[in-house]
């Protein structure tokens, strides 16, 4: 070993390799926290939901199964996104690993991006696994229902019954619905990241994130009132404007409740909705970086 000139290659302004190293390490860090136990809970929940509906028609059974599964996916990915993101920075600061990383030639942008991508990756793995479990159970229940129908339904009505069962289980709009669930959780994660660059404690970040989540679902009402109102006072109008301008419209990313009951989403509408989600994610990340880049560590 010699202490000659530095061996690192010439410094790159942006290095995907560094971002990948941080992102994969973040994913590993989160996975090591055993966050995937919730998958077990998810499977139990959706299998358990069938006990309540055994007396119902197959349409009702499948609908409850889908509602519970997609509802659970929404809440789990959201919780995962918020909790994982809220602890990202504070944990690295507390353990001083942040210092060891930023003392290397790593721009803060890459550090933050790597961390955020790690969370997005985690959410992706989580929602993929849940979708897998959900589809397997749905398929098993469908096969069960088809077999029962073949046994019990008289021949002349059988074809129609089988078609009804198939129609009640799989629906091609489920997939875009699940993509929107993912984007919504990613948006909430980006928002949490932004809040955590402002905040000094994870608890504050989490509480703020939950509040924004709740208000976000009724933001559309404030916007509508703001855009329509002529009669309200200036004070009310200012309040409505602040809610509409600062809080994200999460209702626009809540489509799955309607999709489960058979609502179709056109490609154009899906692309528009997804673009809105992606724009939010991008802006929140960049603003978060803007604050983080000058943060005293």
């Amino acid at each position: 070993m010699t202490a000659a000139a530095p061996i690192a290659t010439k410094h790159k302004i942006f290095s995907p390799a560094r971002v990948t190293a941080i992102a994969s390490n973040t994913l590993l860090e989160l996975v090591r926290l055993k966050v995937f136990y919730f998958l077990l809970l998810f499977a139990l929940l959706i299998i358990g939901s069938s006990f309540f509906t055994s007396k119902f028609t197959f349409q009702e059974q499948f609908q409850v199964l889908k509602d519970v599964s997609l509802g659970a996916m929404s809440i789990f990915t959201w919780l995962l996104g918020v909790l994982a993101t809220a602890m990202l920075l504070p944990k690295d600061i507390e353990d001083r690993t942040l210092y060891t990383i930023l003392a290397k030639p790593v721009p803060r942008f890459e550090y933050l991006l790597g961390k955020f991508l790690g969370v997005l990756l985690l959410l992706f793995v989580a929602i993929s696994l849940m979708t897998g479990v959900f589809l397997v159970i749905l398929y098993a229940r469908q096969q069960d229902a088809l077999a029962n129908a073949a046994r019990l339904v008289p021949a002349q009505a059988l074809q129609e019954q089988l078609a009804d069962i198939r129609a009640a289980t799989f629906n091609k709009n489920l997939l875009p619905g699940i993509v929107i669930i993912y984007l919504k959780s990613a948006l909430c994660a980006a928002l949490t990241l932004l809040l955590s660059t402002f905040a000094s404690s994870s608890i504050f970040t989490i509480i703020m994130s939950v509040i924004v989540y709740l208000i976000g679902h009724i933001q559309a009402i404030a916007r509508e009132a703001y855009l329509a109102s002529q009669t309200t006072t200036a004070l009310t109008k200012a309040f409505l404007a602040i809610v509409a301008l600062l809080i994200p419209d999460l209702n626009s990313l809540t489509l799955v409740d309607d999709i489960v009951v058979g609502n179709a989403i056109s490609t154009v509408l899906f692309v528009k909705t997804a673009s809105l989600g992606l724009t939010y994610i991008g802006i929140y990340f960049l603003v978060g970086y803007f604050v983080f880049s000058a943060k005293e560590l």
């Binding site: 690192a8 290659t9 410094h11 790159k12 290095s15 390799a17 560094r18 190293a21 941080i22 390490n25 590993l28 860090e29 090591r32 353990d95 001083r96 690993t97 210092y99 060891t100 990383i101 003392a103 290397k104 030639p105 790593v106």
Partner: peptide, 26 residues
């Protein structure tokens, strides 16, 4: 840089730790 009382990522082995920081240095 070696900070005071650092906690590196507990789930990494010694070799993996060096690998991670090596990647950060390009």
């Amino acid at each position: 840089f070696l900070p005071e009382n650092p906690y590196f990522y507990k789930y990494l082995t010694g070799a993996e730790t060096l690998d991670f920081y090596g990647k950060l240095c390009g």
